[in-house]
Amino acid sequence: MKDLTLTEEMFLLAVWKLRDNAYGVTIRRHVSEVTDRTYPYGTLYSALDKLVRRGFLTKTESDPTPERGGRSKNYYTITADGLSALKNALELKKAMWGDMNDVILDKGLK
């Protein structure tokens, strides 16, 4: 299985954290707040789309609401595969970072 890219990992994590309220606006807000970067909708939706296609997320359409000009929301939920992918990503990082700590990192090249 292909590893998750960093962007994919972030969005997947965001969806998981947001639980029942994971749709375009909330996901974008959450990721932007945490990372302090702006993610345009193009990036957001193509990442989500790819995750859906890989089976890490499922997409459901809500009923239309008036404040969205009568348009529906795409709610995303994480799947078991998505969870294990997240777990893998974490394992990978842990394994890579395992023999390192902040002190060594601070010393840098010295």
Binding site: G24, Y45, E67, G69, R71, S72
Partner: peptide, 20 residues
């Protein structure tokens, strides 16, 4: 947005932006 977004997410994208 309608023409650039993929067919599936067209409504969601426009809706999201409008909500925000």
């Amino acid at each position: 947005l309608k023409y650039l977004a993929g067919r599936n997410d067209r409504n969601a994208v426009i809706g999201d932006i409008e909500e925000e």
